[in-house]
Design a protein around this nucleic acid. Structure first.
Lengths: 189, 189
DNA sequence: CCCCCCATGTAACATGTTACATGATTGA
DNA sequence: TCAATCATGTAACATGTTACATGGGGGG
């Protein structure tokens, strides 16, 4: 909608945009946000972060305000534009693609976190339902492959590795079901 | 050892090298290998694959033989050199780094598969022991964070997402323990 | 005849990492 | 004074994706 001729935003750009939507922040704050959690999956370098923010600005999804504060170097605080908010909400609402679930699971968890503040509970439950469906399909597909073609694989390790994928995603599925039940039952935040 | 001044091989290059060590193959065969498994995590493009093979050749880790076959376009079949084999074995034996485990788990599973043919059982068990130790540390660290700092996170979703990471890696840990026990007990392949 | 599979590769482009540059303030 | 933290950024370089080029063979 926003601009059809432009390429799609990268995952990293979508996450940055979401963090700014959740709260206006400077590049430095964003950088630290990735560092906080133990074993943060990705810590963007300056050379990745600052150009990405500029790209989002050039597309009209972010705007920047220079914040002066006594005795400090100026911070450049990024805010979402109306188009930025629209784009982010559209990304948050995209259904889970079952065939990409192994690759995108960390991203889906990021979406789950960002959904809490940006969208109503019904969107959160719709997301979890989509995630549950995708994981079910994925696990079933892996099990079918393991019981069929997988048994012809040479040696023992390939099948054992396949089982690893199954048990991990089964654990993810269990989590998603329990979480959906919990959120559906809990009083609204 | 092989050449200190060169950069370290990328993960992708290590995996390619390992696949060639396991059996000499052409670029096209390697490309298909990534496609076989359901929901293959990564499918390299030609533009990634062929240059990577050339880089490995330039480093003296691979050599190529042109295989002619009646009525077919010539295939270029890659073989490991002595240095290539050494490098691969060294990679296979590297211990698991607990702080990178979330990021590198799929790679470790790849190593587990490649270890079966390339190294004796004691190396496989050493690898699994290292993986188990890393996962234990990782899970404990995540749990400590969740019970400490994590409780101060705003909203419910961040903590729920943290729990997702914990249950997934706990499932991985369970798998590693069961697999180590199974392989230690089973007759040698 | 056309399309698909085999099989290898290049060119343009976007993005990422590493390392460096810059500059102010706080605390030992 | 020196180091660390705050804070933003660039330059060189390597790598990846997308799309295209090339060319032979088999099947409908």
């Amino acid at each position: 909608m926003i601009n059809v001729t432009e390429r799609a935003l990268t995952d990293f750009e979508q996450v940055l945009l979401g963090m700014v939507v959740s709260q206006p922040r400077s590049g430095y704050e964003l950088k630290k946000l990735f560092t906080v959690t133990p074993a943060a999956a990705y810590r963007p370098s300056s050379g990745a972060l600052y150009p990405a923010l500029r790209r989002l600005e050039r597309r009209g999804l972010l705007r920047v305000e220079t914040a002066t504060s006594a005795g400090r170097r100026n911070r450049r605080v990024w805010h979402p534009t109306k188009d930025g908010l629209t784009e982010h909400l559209s990304w948050l609402r995209q259904p889970v693609q079952p065939d990409r679930i192994a690759h995108e699971l960390p991203l889906h968890l990021m979406r789950f976190v960002l959904l809490e503040e940006a969208a109503p509970r019904e969107d959160v439950l719709a997301f979890l339902a989509s995630l549950i469906g995708g994981l079910e399909q994925f696990v079933k597909g892996m099990e079918a492959y393991a019981d069929g073609t997988g048994r012809q694989l040479p040696g023992r390790h390939p099948l054992l590795a396949l089982r690893h994928g199954i048990v991990m995603h089964q654990a993810s599925l269990d989590w998603a079901r329990a979480t959906a039940a919990e959120l559906a039952a809990a009083p609204p935040g």
